[in-house]
Simulated scan of single mutants.
Amino acid sequence: MIVRIMGEGQWKVEDCHFVELNKLDDELLAEMESGDGAGFRRTLGALLDAVRRFGAPLPDDSLEPSELILPSPDATLGEVKAMLSDDGLIPG
């Protein structure tokens, strides 16, 4: 799957890594619902780091469509809430 981190670029992430990414997404959603700003910031960073660690970066000039778009590392809680679906940031 092609994952875009806003303001950074795209990574090709194999499907086998989405179990861990979904776990972080669930944590992020719970922290947002409880208003845990520090937890939100920590988990958002961990989620983005996992995408970078598991994924292979695509060249900057690549025009692949992103199947998943994640917020930038400095996104606010409100900005991320606006991006959420019922499943969080990552469907499934």
Rank of each mutant, 00 (worst) to 15 (best):
S66E: 10
M32Q: 13
K81N: 15
D26P: 01
A38C: 02
L63P: 00
M1Q: 14
L70T: 00
D36A: 00
G78E: 14
R42Y: 00
A82K: 11
D25P: 14
E64G: 06
I2A: 08
F18E: 10
L21C: 03
M1F: 11
H17G: 06
V19S: 12
L29M: 03
A38D: 08
P91Y: 06
R53S: 15
M83P: 03
D25Q: 06
C16H: 14
G45E: 12
K81M: 15
M1R: 08
G78M: 13
V19P: 09
L28G: 01
D36G: 08
R52M: 07
L63A: 05
R41S: 11
G39F: 07
K81H: 15
S34L: 08
L84V: 11
S85P: 02
G37I: 05
T76Q: 03
R52S: 12
G9P: 14
C16W: 00
A38I: 02
D36M: 01
R42G: 02
F18L: 06
Q10P: 01
K12E: 05
I69S: 10
A56K: 07
L29C: 04
E14A: 08
G45T: 10
A46M: 02
L89T: 02
V80N: 00
T43D: 15
A56G: 05
R52K: 15
G45R: 07
K12P: 00
S34P: 14
D86M: 15
K12Q: 03
P65S: 06
E20C: 05
G35I: 05
G35W: 03
E33Y: 00
D61Y: 10
V80C: 02
A75C: 08
L58W: 09
A82V: 13
N22G: 08
R42F: 01
L89H: 04
P59N: 13
D26N: 03
S72F: 15
L77Q: 12
D87T: 13
G37C: 06
R53P: 15
D26R: 09
L21E: 05
K12R: 11
K81E: 14
I5M: 06
V19Q: 12
G35Y: 06
P73S: 12
I5T: 03
L28P: 00
E8M: 08
G35C: 07
T43F: 07
L77G: 01
V51C: 04
E64H: 11
L29F: 03
M6A: 12
P73Q: 04
A82Y: 05
D36T: 01
R42A: 03
G9C: 13
V19H: 09
L48Y: 01
I69L: 10
E14F: 05
L84S: 08
L68T: 12
S62C: 12
L29T: 00
L77E: 07
E27C: 12
L21D: 01
F40H: 00
K12Y: 10
D61F: 12
R4F: 04
R41Y: 03
